[in-house]
Amino acid sequence: MARAKVLLVDDEVEFASTLSERLNIRGYDTKAVYSADAVLNKVRSDIPDVVILDLKMPGANGLDILKAIKQFNPSIEVILLTGHGSEQCTAESESGGAFDYMMKPVEIDSLTEKIEMALGKKQK
């Protein structure tokens, strides 16, 4: 069975690369990009199943990237990563079309659980 494609977007290279490796160990085909400019190109070229997107990146508003991804392909599920949760976060992510959001530092098992739920929704 083809592995689910996950695209990880975060400007913290050490974080993104390590999490990417951990997700790969868990059977996902994970790639990481570290800048907002590269995101949309990667999304267009790889067409991932799930995008894990950091909200705060230099030179870009995470919600704008979310909107662009959804416009390109609404079936791509996006999980937002944020430093701190708040009602505003929930509202913004829901209105932007994100599947869910998670707080850093990320609990890997919770993340994989959310990825599976996103994939399940996608298949429906």
């Binding site: 913290e12 974080f15 390590t18």
Partner: peptide
């Protein structure tokens, strides 16, 4: 508080990867 979360997240992933390498590889 925002800033500190990033290096904490990194430590978390690094340590997690160590664990993964030992358990899953």
């Amino acid at each position: 508080a925002h800033e500190i979360n990033n290096p904490l997240a990194i430590i978390n992933e690094k340590a997690g990867l160590m664990k993964d390498l030992m358990l899953m590889s």
